[in-house]
Design a protein around this nucleic acid. Sequence first.
DNA 1: TTTCAAGGCCAT
DNA 2: ATGGCCTTGAAA
Length: 671
Amino acid sequence: MEGGVKCRPTSAGVVLSLRPAENEQKYYQPQCNGELISCSSSACSVVVSNEQMNVDDDSSAADAEVSTFTSETVNLRNRHGEDPRIPVERPMSWEGELSDSEVATIKPEPEDVADTIDNQNSSKGNQTKGDSEVPQPLKLNNETINEKVLDQTRTNHINAHTELPLLVDKILSSGNYLKGAGPTPSPDSAVYSCYSPTASPVTSRHILSSSSGISSPFTPSLSRNNSDASQYGGSQHSSCYSHSYSSVSVSPTQFSPTHSPIQGRHIPRPGFPSPVLNSRSVHDYSIQDDGGVLEDKFSSLTADMVQHSAGLASPGISRQQLINSPCPICGDKISGFHYGIFSCESCKGFFKRTVQNRKNYVCLRGSSCPVTIATRKKCPACRFDKCLNMGMKLEAIREDRTRGGRSTYQCSYTVPAGLVDQKCDLRQEHTQPTSLIPPLLQEIMEVEHLWQYNEGETRGGGRGGPQSSGGGNSTDLMANLCNIADHRLYKIVKWCKSLPLFKNISIDDQTSLLINAWCELLLFSCCFRSMSSPGEIRVSLGKCITLPEARTLGLGPPIERMLNFTEHLRRLRVDRYEYVAMKVIVLLSSDTSELREPEKVRASQEKALQALQHYTLAHYPDIPSKFGELLLRIPDLQRTCQVGKEMLSIKSKEGEGPSFNLLMELLRGDH
DNA sequence: TTTCAAGGCCAT
DNA sequence: ATGGCCTTGAAA
């Protein structure tokens, strides 16, 4: 699959219309994996930061998450089609402060992104930063990691840290992909348009539509528009956003050609949309708690509960009640039904601008910023994410910008969380999912933060962090890789040691398991992180690689496999609980011959398997095969890892994994 | 004719 | 960039 890199014509991407062309309303249509991100193919996807090894998405490293943009990127977009109707736009907008690493790599003066939300604005003008991110020397078991050990890692094991994301990351950083930062970044998020500053978004979209050739394997058929036609006298609107985003936001199981949500909108109550299962799982919210707001989580949870309670929302709730309820995104007053949900005027406008202008915001704070009336301006990335989570439909944005008329995109409706909270008395129900989470899974989730990599930690030890590479020579690169890998390794070891199922396993076996699975774990987290960006692999926070880019770097096969694997994750709508459970299952693969007590490992893995099975059955009763399908992906993962290792042809003297001795030392640290 | 969900305009 | 208000136009 080509990923979201190029947009080729696809049957799914063709605008379907039963109406004469002149009257046709076109909606933005995601080609291949597309939408906002697909544009990145040519340029935008090169979201460059100097973060390394941030194999986990949600980012405890949020404050360090930065995306920058390259001027070449802008130029690339400039090469795209232009629309004379649209005035030349100012150059790409830039937001987002640079982290130390980026500054070190990109420009001389160091900055930090550790400002709190509250002082973001004040810090905009004055880039002076605190040293909250000043790294501390890594400590394990209260002892600073011995330089010797680190040297050993550097000299002997860096090759062993054949972490594809990292390597790709570094390759990107040291090559042409790493560019200077733009002007005045905002502390909240990085934003980059996905179309040429001189090109109309319409034009861009048409380009996408016309050039796309491969559709997502699980792309919902646009035949759903046929049902719209039945409702609207054949008026057809197609949308390209139904993919990428809807691959996440629309459950394939809900997307039945025989069941048009629009029917639900009109049949029970003309002009009144019916609830449809929506978007991203509640778990996306409920678990990403890095600075998240309980209110938001609760809103998401309740909203999701309503969605999962298919159909219980509409009956008994009048349109007026809905309009009188708070906007599900920011809590402001609802002004009407916009893009698939009842929302306020500002969120409507925000969503429209974001999609039409193909903005691609990146949160700098872990994608868990609160979105309220007061804070909605602070992080457009999280606001847009919430728009999608709450059910706004990308396909509701008209590609040709025609005005008036009734929309014919797939209408679905999510009851605003606040309304649910207040009027549907679903409190009891919304607590149910939590209670359905097996305790073991909850315990695993509790230590998940240890997995997350904080870039700032790599700055310690006086050895120079990865950010000091500055895209220098290969020696620098390797040195930095060592440093990063060291720290990443420590993180992983810490995570492993904290796993409830890991504690009753001997240190020797722990070491063997880690050596056996480290690559799969890292790739898995990288792919999981990339679920939200079809066609791209997020090799680190804010840094993506597309298949063509990978090919030019000689990394086509592994990246292609990763993309495929990620597509499967997306198709299966793997949520975070499933993800952490699978990581543990992968880690506890007892088929390594070195295990001294394989039965213990098997027993632990079985517990994890049971927990995952119970979870999937409880949370996705309509997809009884999900558990099995999840497990079926593990061989894929292992093969992907193999390919990555083979491709990179980097093997340590002692094998392909991290040093056994080093691991032993680390593992023994806390024992 | 009315409704209402699109896009547009423009002060901030 | 935001967000309130206006215009548009197909469906009801």
